[in-house]
């Protein structure tokens, strides 16, 4: 938010003015910059290495000499991945899951957090709901009972099994609730004067004012859906309906040689799956890398309003 940025700027300027650069302090500064640069690099190097692998030929990969730059440059691995309907399909299912999952979650979140942000007098169900939420946060049925419920609902083996459970994150709900409480009441009053009912107030006043927190929640939920592999494995009947991460588990699992058949071994010897693996991982990571920098400015607001990290 603008005010935060402004504050930070002032702070930095103030400190800049005050700091006299003694040699020790200079050394100190260099040290900090170096360490931070190394840390920053450490977070990106594995991915650069992976990109290098994905563009490399199989011989240098086998020899283990590819580091951060492709050797025997080629794009076969990408062609291979993009030529595979199975991979493309898994990718598409993940995209669909994120889109549907995020829309479901956000609707549910806003719809629940809004009444909760109001007084108990206005919404007498609030105390009961909050108690239930706390109890729910403290208990858990575990994998097996959850599966039985899903099966009883007839959701297993359907796409909905991927997006419906976990639709309402209780923790996020508290965060959004807190955010709503800080929205200035004058705006709401003005809307009411115009004859809006509370649903309209929520849509017209609260949601536009809560873009940072909603964007953050959308990002967290979206990343959660994109990265989840377990529910795909548990609930989907056919491997062709697996979301990308569940599909990738098969790709990144290195084969155990003693259990391979001769035919499988031959196949494995012919293709160095490592570059294909790398290419598929890169493709799977790209969407997140593209989206998150745009939402980065909202993180801080989104995360800090609840008071703790999410």
């Amino acid at each position: 938010m603008a005010t935060t940025e402004q504050k930070e700027k002032n702070l930095v300027m103030t400190r800049n003015r005050q700091i006299r650069s003694s040699p020790v302090e200079k050394l100190f500064t260099i040290l900090i910059y170096t360490i931070l640069a190394i840390l920053g690099a450490s977070c990106i190097i594995p991915f650069i290495h992976l990109i290098a692998l994905s563009f490399s030929g199989s011989d240098p990969i086998k020899a283990g000499v590819v580091s951060l730059w492709p050797m025997e440059f080629n794009t076969d691995a990408y062609k291979y991945a993009l030529d595979h309907p199975a991979f493309i399909r898994a990718f598409g299912i993940s995209v669909a899951r994120v889109v549907v999952g995020v829309s479901f979650s956000l609707s549910m979140l806003v719809l629940t957090a809004y009444p909760l942000s109001k007084s108990n007098e206005a919404c007498p169900l609030n105390p009961l709901f909050k108690v239930l939420m706390i109890v729910a946060m403290l208990t858990g049925g575990g994998l097996i009972p959850m599966y039985l419920v899903m099966s009883w609902l007839g959701l297993t083996n359907t796409f909905w099994a991927l997006v419906v459970p976990g639709m309402l994150s209780l923790w996020n709900c508290f965060m959004v609730m807190n955010f709503f409480r800080n929205v200035p009441s004058e705006l709401e009053e003005a809307a009411i004067v115009d004859g809006a009912n509370s649903f309209q107030v929520m849509v017209k006043v609260y949601i536009p004012l809560s873009v940072p927190v909603i964007a953050s929640m959308a990002l967290f939920t979206g990343v959660g859906h994109w990265n989840d592999w377990f529910s795909g494995m548990l609930y989907m009947a056919r491997s062709r309906d697996y979301p990308l991460q569940t599909y990738l588990r098969q790709v990144v699992t290195t084969p155990n040689f003693s259990s391979l058949t001769i035919e499988e071994m031959q196949k494995y010897a012919q293709i160095t799956s490592k570059n294909n693996q790398a290419a598929q991982i890169i493709i799977a990571t790209v969407p997140i890398m593209c989206v998150y920098p745009f939402l980065q400015k909202y993180f801080m607001t989104g995360l800090t309003l609840g008071g703790v990290k999410g």
Partner: peptide, 24 residues
């Protein structure tokens, strides 16, 4: 009719355990 298939042993075992539990 293929009720389900799995791409890894883990996925197969998980699905099979659930199928046993559900009697499906």
């Amino acid at each position: 009719e293929v009720m389900w298939n799995a791409n890894t042993d883990e996925a197969y075992n998980t699905k099979f355990a659930m199928a046993m539990l559900e009697d499906d």
